[in-house]
Amino acid sequence: MHELSVCQSMLRQVEEIAQREQATSVERIVIQIGPLSGVVPELLQQAFTIARCGTRAESAELVTQTQPVRVHCLQCGYDSDAQANRLLCAECGDYRTRLISGDELLLASVELTKN
């Protein structure tokens, strides 16, 4: 379970932003996670309840936006939905595709309270 490492890294980034913006507390953290990022949102939520203690994000809410897995076909040019372990073109069935969404591991935004 590497979600705790990911969570601690995220909180260090959030703390930095809160400090820079002279915020007293962090209210909300919005992250984007794709099924192919290798991070499980539920485990990250669990890790968050432990890792946030003693930080400015102690009472913050962690909001996860899950991104869909989508591929672009390099053969026929079609964009389609796919599954994490089946990244084939839905139009022509070719395996020569490029992932266009689904591997995100992003800190999208933070909501802060300032004095």
């Binding site: 990911v6 890294s9 995220m10 260090r12 980034q13 932003i17 913006e21 915020a23 209210e27 909300r28 992250i31 991070v39 591991l105 992003l106 800190l107 999208a108 935004s109 933070v110 909501e111 802060l112 309270t113 300032k114």
Partner: peptide, 13 residues
């Protein structure tokens, strides 16, 4: 509250 867009990798460190 003030919302700040970040759009950085969670593992940027």
């Amino acid at each position: 509250h003030v919302a700040i867009e970040v759009l950085e990798n969670l593992l940027s460190e």
